[in-house]
Amino acid sequence: MSSSPIQSTELSEPIAPVSSYSPEDQPAYASGRLISMVMNTGSGHHAYGHEQLARQLTAYFSEQGFEVDLYLLTEARQLSEVVRQARAKHEREGGVIVAAGGDGTLNTVAQELKHSSIRMGIIPLGTFNYVARALDIPLDPFAAAQVIVEGIARPVHLGIVNDYIYLNNASIGLYPKIIEQRELYNARFGRFRVVAMVSGFVVLMREQQKLKLKMTIDGEQTPIETPLVFFGNNQLQLQDLKLTLAECVAQGKLAAVAITALTRWQMIKLIHRLQVGLFEQAPEVTSFCADQIKIESRVKRMKVAIDGEIVQISTPLIFKVAHNALQVMVPQGVTK
């Protein structure tokens, strides 16, 4: 998905699935064997290939005895509305709503399914696929589909900022600028990990404006000037970044990092510290492990990067964790 805001868009008419398959001999609805799969085919550079894949997966689920509704979307703005429509059907008939896409797509689906008993399935088609990897969901689409058929539902925690959720991370300051630069590079060079890394490095090497904030951490106020505040909710991603805050997430708490303003040379040293696992020991870095963090600013709205998408959110920003707020299909035996 692109860096367009994650938002709910009311459409004039319901969106019907482009195809619906039902096994002849099984009462799928009565047994809760309903699958609704949503995919945004208008994003990325392999849209046609993804459409073919969606139909192959639909056929696979049907062969396994599931009633399948397939939604192929060409615009990201349609996604929230489609999931709301599917949710109403699943509240009556049970089953699984499957998000086929990157972590931005997963976020939008999870936003609509939070605090419900409806199970969410994942077909990872993104660049990094941190959500799937953290839950031991295979990156091969058909192996991931098998997990949806044979796996179990596991409750997972969600990061919350005001009315939005984040599965991986949320941040203000530098990171939204990194996302914007990444999308420019993606449009030119394609969605590859090396492109994301290079675009991020370009932003980090520029002069950055400090944010003057007031943070309230579990009731204790502190002023801070920083170009970046980063909140993580994905233990694997924090481990990949060599951050000990991964243990904070494992405990179901709010993990955050803020840095002071840096020169280019200090930034280079900080990147090196990140690579060798010494990032949190740098004097320019402050880590937080809390139940709730409130961020106040003089500006009325702030750009927040949420799972790779950018939204404008009214201040103050309230960050917390919603425990066991989403039911996700994972392989049997996964308990972490």
Rank of each mutant, 00 (worst) to 15 (best):
G200H: 07
R188H: 04
V156M: 13
Q181N: 12
I179L: 01
V156Y: 06
A170G: 14
I148E: 14
M197Y: 02
I165R: 15
R188V: 06
D140S: 05
G151A: 11
Y164T: 06
Q209G: 08
F189C: 01
V149N: 14
R154Q: 14
L184V: 06
H157A: 13
Q209H: 08
D163P: 09
R182G: 03
A196K: 04
E180W: 04
R133T: 12
D140A: 03
L139C: 01
L184R: 08
R154W: 04
M205S: 00
P176I: 06
K210H: 09
A170K: 10
A144I: 02
A132D: 03
V203M: 05
K212S: 14
H157T: 11
N169Y: 11
K177G: 12
A143N: 09
L135V: 02
G200W: 06
H157D: 15
Q208G: 10
R188Y: 02
V202N: 01
L139W: 08
Y166F: 15
D136Y: 09
L213V: 12
R191K: 12
V202I: 05
N169A: 11
F201A: 06
R188P: 02
Y185Q: 01
D136I: 03
A145E: 12
V131G: 02
E183H: 12
V147N: 13
V202L: 03
D163M: 08
Y166V: 01
Y130E: 00
E183N: 08
E180P: 02
F189T: 00
R182E: 02
M205H: 05
V156I: 15
Y130M: 07
M197P: 00
L139D: 05
E180Q: 09
P155H: 06
A143E: 14
G151L: 12
Q181I: 07
A187N: 09
F192M: 03
A187H: 05
R188Q: 05
V202T: 02
Q181V: 03
L135S: 02
A143H: 14
L213M: 14
A132F: 03
F189L: 00
R191A: 06
I172V: 11
A134C: 13
I172H: 08
R154Y: 10
I165H: 15
E150K: 14
K177R: 15
P141D: 05
P155R: 01
P176G: 07
V156E: 08
G173I: 13
K177Q: 15
L174D: 05
I137W: 03
R193N: 00
R133E: 10
I172C: 10
V195L: 02
R191T: 01
S171Y: 09
I178V: 15
A144S: 12
Q146N: 11
Y130L: 06
I172Q: 05
G159M: 11
R182K: 06
Q146T: 14
Q208N: 13
I160C: 12
Q146H: 13
E180R: 08
Y166H: 03
V161Y: 10
P141S: 02
R182S: 02
L174K: 09
P176A: 09
I148F: 11
L135F: 00
K210W: 07
M205Y: 00
E183K: 07
Q146I: 09
I172P: 07
Y130C: 04
N186A: 00
R191L: 07
Y175N: 15
L167H: 10
V156S: 10
I165K: 14
L211P: 08
A145P: 12
D136M: 08
L158T: 13
A143M: 14
I152M: 05
P155K: 04
I137K: 04
N162I: 02
